[in-house]
Simulated scan of single mutants.
Amino acid sequence: MDTELDLGRARAAVDAALAAAAAQNKRISVAVVDHRGHDVLVVRGDGAAWFTTGVARAKAATTALMGVASGNLAGLRADYPELLELIAAQTAQPVTTLPGGIPVRAEGTVVGAVGVSGASPDEDAAYAEAGVAALRSAGQSMS
Rank of each mutant, 00 (worst) to 15 (best):
L7R: 15
R9T: 00
R11N: 10
R11T: 04
A13H: 04
A13S: 11
A20W: 06
A21I: 08
A22C: 02
A22Y: 05
N25C: 06
N25E: 13
N25Y: 00
I28F: 12
S29Q: 12
S29E: 14
G37T: 06
D39W: 00
V40I: 14
L41Q: 15
L41S: 13
L41I: 14
V43E: 15
D46C: 06
G47M: 08
A49T: 12
T52N: 01
G54F: 04
V55K: 03
R57K: 10
A60D: 07
T63Y: 02
T63M: 04
L65A: 13
L65P: 03
V68T: 07
A69G: 15
S70D: 01
N72W: 03
L76G: 10
A78D: 14
D79Q: 13
E82Q: 12
I87L: 14
A89F: 06
A92Q: 11
P94E: 05
P99D: 09
G101H: 01
V104S: 04
G108M: 11
T109F: 05
V110S: 11
V114R: 11
G115L: 11
S117T: 03
S120K: 12
A125K: 15
A126V: 07
A126H: 00
Y127N: 06
A128S: 13
E129L: 15
G131K: 08
V132S: 05
A134D: 00
